Computed example of a mutant assay.
Amino acid sequence: MFQEVLIQEVGKNVKKETSIIEAVATALDISYDAAHRRTSFKSKFSLDESIKLAQYFNISLDKLFGTSTEKYVSVSRTTSIKNEYDLQEYFETSYNSLLPLLDRKDCEVYYSAKDIPLFYTLKNNKLSSFKMYVWLKLLDKNFRAYKFEEFSPKLSTLQSAQKLGDLYKDLNTSEIWDVTTINSTLKQIHFYYKAGQLSLKDSLELCKELKELLDDISKKVVSKKHKFKLYHNELLLMSNNVLIITPEQQSLFVPCAMLSYLNTRDKETCLEAKQYFDKQFYHSRLLNTVGEKEQNQFYYKMMQKIDALCDLIKAQDLLGFE
Results as ranks from 00 to 15, higher is better:
Gln295Tyr: 03
Asp215Asn: 12
Phe91Val: 00
Thr67Val: 15
Phe277Lys: 10
Ile30Val: 15
Gln275Val: 15
Ser223Tyr: 12
Tyr95Lys: 04
His36Trp: 11
Leu287Cys: 13
Met1His: 09
Phe45Asp: 00
Ile51His: 04
Ser184Phe: 12
Lys301Tyr: 14
Glu175Asp: 05
Thr289Arg: 11
Glu205Leu: 14
Thr180Asp: 14
Gln297Glu: 14
Ala27His: 05
Leu271Trp: 02
Leu235Ser: 04
Asp33Val: 07
Ser80Ile: 13
Asp140Arg: 05
Asn142Cys: 05
Val134Cys: 07
His283Asp: 08
Leu87His: 04
Tyr276Glu: 04
Ser184Asn: 13
Lys114Tyr: 05
Trp177Phe: 15
Leu139Val: 00
Ile182Lys: 11
Asn125Lys: 08
Leu167His: 02
Leu319Cys: 01
Lys219Cys: 00
Leu230Glu: 12
Lys16Asn: 12
Gln250His: 12
Ser184Trp: 15
Ala195Trp: 00
Ala257Pro: 00
Asp307Leu: 08
His226Tyr: 14
Ser80Cys: 07
Ser156Val: 04
Lys314Ser: 13
Phe253Leu: 15
Leu164Asp: 01
His226Ala: 08
Val221Thr: 10
Leu122Met: 09
Tyr110Ser: 08
Thr79Asp: 14
Asp103Lys: 13
Tyr72Ile: 10
Thr185Val: 10
Glu294Met: 13
Ser199Asn: 06
Tyr133Arg: 01
Phe41Thr: 04
Val14His: 09
Tyr72Pro: 00
Val73Ser: 15
Glu84Ala: 15
Lys201Thr: 09
Ile116Ala: 02
Gln3Gly: 01
Thr121Ser: 10
Ser203Thr: 06
Ser31Ile: 09
Lys219Thr: 05
Ala34Arg: 09
Leu64Cys: 07
Glu175His: 02
Lys219Asp: 14
Glu150Ile: 12
Phe277Gly: 08
Arg38Tyr: 10
Ser128Leu: 02
Asp62Leu: 06
Gln188Asp: 15
Asp202Arg: 03
